[in-house]
Simulated scan of single mutants.
Amino acid sequence: MVAYVNTETLPSLPPPKGLQGPAAWMRQNLFSNWINGTITVVLVIGILAALIPFVNWAFIKADWVGTSRDDCTSGGACWVFVYVHFKLFMLGLYPEAETWRALLVGGILVLTLAGLMIKGVPLKKYIQIFALFFFPIVAYVLLSGGYFGLPHVETNFWGGLLLTLVIAIVGIVAAFPLGILLALGRRSSMPIVKAICVVFIEVWRGVPLITVLFMSSVMLPLFLPEGMEIDKLLRALVGITLFQAAYLAEVVRSGLQAIPKGQTEAANALGLTYWQGMYKVILPQALKIVIPGIVNSFIALFKDTSLVLIIGLFDLLATIQGAFSNPKWLGYAIEGYLFAALVYWIFCFGMSRYSQHVERSLKTTH
């Protein structure tokens, strides 16, 4: 009997033709049996029945450019409403002559975020320092003015997407480190520190944000000394930051509780202090676990900025509502709300996708 042993590795064969390609994917996922096939067909028909009229109204028959509602004659969507009020939606009542300042701040913000997010960008450490410590100062000086010969622009004139981004960015940047400190304090072994953090978190989580904004706008001035005033936007920013920090604290605490006790013991065995162990061992692992929860809180904060309307601040949504309340533009609320929904979706979807990218880049357990 003769035995033959092949010592060479045979080349990999391609998968069968019926198991690859779009047709195979549809057969496996959409038409695997008659029930799934029926559901797929019904859903496709329903989506097309709703989508075709919408596309026809929103794009094919739409009017895009003009100066007044008289230019909307096709019977479709009147995007002229957005075209005419675009500057108002973006910057609110910010003075026309000073628009360049807001645009410059937006350009610096985009470049800074690009430098932080794109891999391989040199001097990333200095970009981080600029983003945390210098960009807020530069943005405030440019937007508010009163320095270096720039005319002062009161925050009452800030509005639209500009105000939405200011509130969201300040709330996120300020609430995140405060939330981490509150989470650490709630897990502290010092009774007084723990009690203070527990009371803070439970009180702020126990009231709705709209109540916080009312208190900061209406009640707080009653407790201030006579003649002392605090800017309305600043009061809103402080209230939103404290409110969001309480929610972020619980998200971070869930990540801290998910870390095995052995990690803390290992940090102690290496001779690390409490803060060194937290910074180098515990927090990097805990924050990686709760990235979805953190980003979810950021997205919720971005959308909750629309509540500042109740205290007289006109963000993007409030500005759009004010525009279609104008008698000259009555009847175009749908276009305004669709534009607002698109803007909110772009920012929220961008945060969601970037968080997924960060999760994949930090996934070291597999």
Rank of each mutant, 00 (worst) to 15 (best):
I334W: 09
I334E: 10
I334A: 10
I334R: 11
I334V: 11
I334F: 13
E335C: 02
E335H: 06
E335W: 02
E335R: 03
E335M: 05
G336P: 01
G336K: 01
G336V: 01
G336M: 04
G336Q: 06
Y337D: 12
Y337S: 13
Y337C: 11
Y337Q: 14
L338Y: 02
L338S: 01
L338N: 01
L338G: 01
A340I: 09
A340G: 09
A340K: 07
A340S: 12
A340W: 11
A340M: 12
A340Y: 12
A341W: 08
L342I: 08
L342Q: 02
V343F: 05
V343Q: 01
V343T: 03
V343P: 03
V343R: 05
Y344F: 05
Y344M: 05
Y344V: 01
W345Y: 11
W345S: 07
W345G: 01
W345L: 10
I346E: 08
I346V: 12
I346N: 07
I346M: 09
I346H: 07
F347M: 13
C348L: 07
C348F: 06
C348V: 06
C348Q: 03
F349W: 15
F349P: 00
F349D: 14
F349E: 15
F349S: 14
F349T: 13
F349I: 13
F349L: 14
G350Y: 10
G350L: 07
G350C: 05
G350F: 05
G350S: 07
G350A: 04
M351F: 09
M351C: 08
M351R: 10
M351L: 12
M351W: 11
S352Q: 10
S352W: 09
S352G: 00
S352N: 09
S352C: 00
S352H: 10
S352Y: 11
R353D: 00
R353M: 04
R353S: 00
R353I: 00
R353V: 00
R353F: 04
Y354A: 05
Y354H: 06
Y354K: 00
Y354R: 04
Y354S: 02
S355T: 02
S355P: 04
S355M: 04
S355D: 06
S355W: 05
S355N: 03
Q356R: 13
Q356M: 13
Q356I: 11
Q356P: 00
Q356D: 13
Q356C: 10
Q356T: 11
Q356S: 12
H357M: 13
H357G: 12
H357T: 12
H357K: 14
H357P: 00
V358H: 06
V358P: 01
E359L: 09
E359H: 02
E359C: 00
E359T: 01
E359F: 00
E359R: 10
R360P: 08
R360S: 15
R360E: 15
R360F: 14
S361G: 12
S361W: 15
S361L: 15
S361Y: 14
S361M: 15
S361N: 15
L362W: 13
L362A: 11
L362S: 12
K363A: 15
K363G: 11
K363R: 15
K363N: 15
K363H: 15
T364F: 10
T364W: 04
T364C: 03
T364M: 05
T364A: 08
